[in-house]
Amino acid sequence: MSAGRGLRGAIVWAIAPYAPTAPFRIWGGPDQPVAVVETATDLARMALERGLDPEQTFLTAGKLRPVVILQERPRRALPEYAALRIVRLEGLPRAGQEAIRAGREPSLFYLKAGRAKYGMTKEGAIDLNSLLRIHESAIAGRPIGRLDADEMRAVGESLAQHLDIDLTLLVERKIRERMARLAAARRTLD
């Protein structure tokens, strides 16, 4: 994958792991049985009492699937990208599918089927509750589609809300800057 430039807004196929959940399965090597630790607290106790290796290899499920990349990496200084999973609509009840198509589901940004724009033959939706980190080596091939700037703006605004990020001060500063620009433009016209 020649990742690095122009990936913000791109729809790519990538290995998208699920969030590790208990019980946790730990791979100890080819000759060792897979260890099962029931809870994160149990693992912490093991670390405290007996000592653990500096890191463990957790066995966790994942899937090759389309995701939308949220960040640009022009310097390629960071190999990981924030991304959102694209969910297919076909598994949902008909009423839910229709609500998504009509834009009545704020958590699900509708992507119609079609090769031209989004590169998928099945319709889907960006799940705003599925923030992932995708390493560039986990991206397969090249982008199949892309969200435009307006769509990325809408996704970004909605994502900030879904993540409970408080943007009050940022927005306030932007408004003041906008007001100052408008006032300066008006003074120039006068």
Partner: peptide
């Protein structure tokens, strides 16, 4: 619908 879609995709 949002919860169901998320559970399916996850």
């Amino acid at each position: 619908t949002a919860l169901e879609a998320h559970a399916l995709a996850e």
